[in-house]
């Protein structure tokens, strides 16, 4: 199991465990506030915006061009921004901390 921690905008910290699928789906299935996943993960809605903890950026990598173009026009964007529907759960993500952007 891969452990992923979310910190919501009202500062609640929730750690979830997942095996596969996208980080967005894990968050939506567990009702993480601020992650709606409206478009189901095809990169068209930006309702899955998170800020990756700086020390975890090496695990997640940075956004693809299409994802970056999407983020560029979103509120609260910064250098640690990712759309978490584009993060596939795998062992390499174990232990990461994500701050929900909205």
């Amino acid at each position: 199991m891969v452990k992923i921690t979310f910190i919501t905008s009202d500062n609640e910290t929730i750690t979830l465990e997942g095996k596969s699928g996208s980080v967005m789906a894990l968050a939506v299935d567990n009702g993480i506030k601020g992650i709606d996943g409206d478009c189901g993960g095809v990169c068209s809605c930006a309702t899955c915006h998170v800020h990756v903890a700086p020390e975890d950026m090496s695990k997640t990598g940075s956004a693809s061009q299409i994802e970056a173009d999407m983020l560029e026009l979103d509120d609260n964007v910064n250098e640690f921004s990712r759309l978490c529907c584009q993060l596939e759960i795998s062992d390499s993500l174990d232990g990461i901390v994500l701050k929900v952007a909205n």
Binding site: D38, C39, V42, C43, S44, C45, S64, I66, D69, M70, L73
Partner: peptide, 20 residues
């Protein structure tokens, strides 16, 4: 289609309220 940043429901502030 896996990556599909379409704007069929609009984009940004006024994106479609009825989309859900």
């Amino acid at each position: 289609r896996k990556i599909n940043p379409h704007v069929g429901f609009g984009f940004s502030h006024h994106n479609c309220l009825g989309a859900t």
